[in-house]
Amino acid sequence: MIARAVPQPAPSADEMLLKIVGLSKVYKGGGPPVHAVRGVSLSLEPGQFVAVMGPSGSGKSSLLHMLGGLEPPTTGQIWFDGARVDGLSQARWAMLRRRNIGFVFQFFNLVSNMTVADNVELPALMSGATRRQAKERRIELLAELGLSDKASASPARLSGGEQQRVALARALANRPSLLLADEPTGNLDSLNSADVLRVLCRVHGQGQTIILVTHDARAASMADRVVNLFDGMIIDDMDVVTPIRPSVAAAGVLRLGE
């Protein structure tokens, strides 16, 4: 009944952007070892938008961290764009992130001392763009996210939704092949969530591959595919389909009157 870590042949350099095989994470140190992720395998095509759901402690965030190289897996393989990356050094991972993986977090994590513009330009500058290129990309992104007038503001002066959109702009600055989002709406009210989700949908529409870890079913329903984690394992992997007559849906959920 539960998808076990089935040994699979090593993925060939096929059309998958990301392929993980039997990934586990065990936290040790003080007390009994905690099995956060147990043998998760998953493939992701370019352009796919996958939501990862599951109760707290189901290993969603650990999985995402491993996919972005923030922490190393205990066992298992990660293949990114046809190359095996799970054994990379911290520095190599950093370089991979710099060009190919964008991150968005629940608490936005903008560099508080830098202006919005500087935050967004940072990744481009880091990957060797000139000041002008970085600036052009920043102007383009902020315009797209409706933040052009906030360029010189300090992050602390922005609302949560605005901060998260800046964080999105920063994550997208280098046109990464993979965007990893960790509960991006977890700290926002519904209006701001809707704003952020709309942006996610739009970049997805432009071909952006996204992995979104979330509790928020509304956010998850934007994805093409929802992977459900429970106790560190995948218990369900579904393609989301739009009902043929969505208008029936509201009535199906909420009956007005008797």
Binding site: M1, I2, R198, A217, R218, A220, S221, M222, V226, N228, I235, D236, M238, V240, V241, T242, P243, R245, P246, S247, V248, A249, A250, G252, V253
Partner: peptide, 26 residues
């Protein structure tokens, strides 16, 4: 006996409904 399948099925249904609502909202 497969309650998990039952739950999953229901969840899929809900998520699809949710997607429909999102589409409707937009």
């Amino acid at each position: 006996t497969d309650q998990m399948a039952l739950i999953n099925r229901q969840r899929r249904h809900y998520l699809n409904l949710m997607r429909g609502l999102s589409k409707l909202a937009s």
